[in-house]
Design a protein around this nucleic acid. Sequence first.
RNA 1: GGAAAGGUGGCUGAGUGGUUGAAGGUGCUCGCCUGGAAAGCGAGUGAAGGGGCAACUCUUCCGAGGGUUCGAAUCCCUCCCUUUCCGCCA
Length: 423
Amino acid sequence: MIDIKKLRDDASTLKAKWQSRGLDVDVDALLAKDKEWRDCISSVEELKKTRNDESKKIGQIKKSGGDATEQMAAVKKIGDDIKELDEKAHTLHEDLQHELLSLPNPPSDSSPVGKSEEDNPFVRDWGTKAEFDFKPQAHWDLGEKLGILDMERAAKISGSGFALYRGAGAKLERALINFFLDRHEENGYQENWTPFLVNSKTMTGTGQLPKFKEDLYHTEKDDRFLIPTAEVPVTNIYSEEILEKDDLPKYMCAYTPCFRREAGAAGKDTRGIIRMHQFNKVEMVKLVEPDQSYTELELLVADAEQLLQNLGLHYKVIELCTADIGFSAARCYDIEVWAPGIGRYLEVSSCSNFEDFQSRRANIRYRPEKGGKPTYLHTLNGSGLALPRCVVAIMETYQREDGSIEVPDALVPYMNGQTEITP
RNA sequence: GGAAAGGUGGCUGAGUGGUUGAAGGUGCUCGCCUGGAAAGCGAGUGAAGGGGCAACUCUUCCGAGGGUUCGAAUCCCUCCCUUUCCGCCA
């Protein structure tokens, strides 16, 4: 959420930033509503002051045995006015708050301005596209023939958009999760195991609510949501808390399954395991001091890249332009791994700096100096990494002509010494 | 799911309708004292929001939301959470 004070002070800059996202925000209407709310608050407070003073006087009169009937009637009238105005102020505030919560983060000045994903600048790449002296197969063919991926039975059990990994396929998932988590621990991230169902307050904290309810699985009876990413529970670990300067930076990571309705993505990536309603992911989250967040973003991307390098997978890093950047992010890098079987780069990580957008929503603060005033810290997160697309890249990159798959060296210990996957 | 007890400041813990934003203790900060420290003494020590250039000032907040009342931490209702016991269950 943006700071309403910024909107009061410098609406035109914010408006321009939203415009760079392709969003036309009626800032004048927002400011008018804000003004109306503040005027309302002022009147209420004035009335409350009068009421408090008068009530005290009544107390004194009664104590000294006097008759305060007249005063009581007068204050009663004030009370009625307060109630009415208070309700109005409350409604105005809720309304304004809802509108503010639905506004995306204004992109950082450092984010490249663009009109669509076509304008996302290339940052760097690592490795080269794998070459084959045979025609490489797509993972769905490889997986089915090897018996490690059973999309048909997954559909029978749950429907489309779900994967059933079997045998070495299941083991590969487990191996990747452990491999990723171990690397993060080495890099100073504390491992977390979180709830996978969260309440609406938590979802609002990281920005999934109120705007993207349609993308989430919701349990009607208990009003809880299945997490679409570990970012949600992990970032909210310290919600409503005030941390000390010495507590920062906080490096945290977690493996979780992720649940996404993929509403609006119908017909996209329907084959294979590129877009799933349920998938596994390891996520890194950082809570940092504001002046460190852009340095930390670079480090975060490097930590994600390291994993692909260890796996020997070719990838490229791109930066998202203002038109393509996510709702909550101020700046964002995507890492895309090369999948030679289908001949596409696949997004396996998104590393973002949210600045104080999430911390303001989730109310995560810290004291810049001992005994000082609490202020909002900066949050960042990055996938490290999303499993299915890594599996795709591994299968397709390490495939042999006979359809078997070589296990990348880094994963062999995590596969109990298994070096290849054969039928 | 049933029963009971609770939810007050960084922590602990009083408070049952009227200067209570909240006693006492503890912790923390600053000062005095000391060769230095401890002890002791003194002062300060929550958050959000509004107004003001500022000193400052006002409002709100005792789990959340309603209600009663001239006035609510205190009384009533609903919900949430915690603990203990019972039941059920991986």
